[in-house]
């Protein structure tokens, strides 16, 4: 069983870190995992993306054409990855930065106003974790608790004060995807 996730957005939106977080959680669950980043000039302000592949078996190619899930943080990412997600796959869209509806009808689509939720939580940098939380509601391979435990272990020391905010952001994303209404 192999799960392929692409996380894509502007440089600075934390897409590489969100992917690493999934990778740490997979490693800590003794699964096979590869994290493959874009590492070009796009990291300095253009689009950035990473591919995370999680499997219970040895992983061949670290890159794939059709992911089982995609998190798109901005419009160029939606345009690029919406056509590529596998049928019945998951597409998590950051509606804060996307001004069109997804067109595919054969996907599990999650519309998340991630920037607004992040700002509500007091830090717009949390948008990536809101999106990740929404994705986790649709994924069998990792739970939000497992990813949260990895976050605790691997959040950089200089961001440790943001730990609770990050966890809250993930929970909000998951709750939104699960259709729960949370008091704000």
């Amino acid at each position: 069983m192999q799960t392929e996730i692409i996380i894509s957005g502007f440089g600075g939106q934390g897409v590489l870190f969100a992917g690493q977080l999934l990778s740490y959680a997979a490693l800590e669950k003794d699964l096979h995992v590869t994290w493959f980043p874009s590492y070009g000039p796009e990291m300095r302000g253009g689009t950035a993306h990473c591919t995370v592949i999680i499997s219970d078996d040895e992983i061949g190619s670290p890159v794939i054409r059709n992911p089982t899930a995609a998190i798109v943080m901005n419009l160029p990412s939606l345009d690029k990855y919406e056509p590529l997600v596998k049928t019945d796959g998951v597409l998590v869209v950051n509606t804060s930065l996307v001004d069109r509806d997804p067109e595919r009808e054969d996907l599990q689509i999650e519309l998340v106003p991630a920037n607004e939720i992040a700002e509500e939580l007091g830090d717009k940098r949390l948008a990536n974790l809101v999106m990740l939380g929404a994705l986790l509601n649709h994924l069998d391979v990792l739970s939000i608790d497992e990813v949260g435990a990895s976050l605790k272990r691997h959040i950089p020391a200089h961001h440790r004060d943001l730990l609770q905010g990050n966890i809250k952001a993930m929970q909000r994303g998951t709750a939104l995807a699960a259709g729960e209404k949370l008091a704000t």
Binding site: L27, H32, V33, T34, W35, F36, Y39, P62, V63
Partner: peptide
């Protein structure tokens, strides 16, 4: 190659 240099794996 660049992909092996840049990718992360356990």
């Amino acid at each position: 190659d660049g992909s092996l240099g840049q990718m992360m794996e356990p």
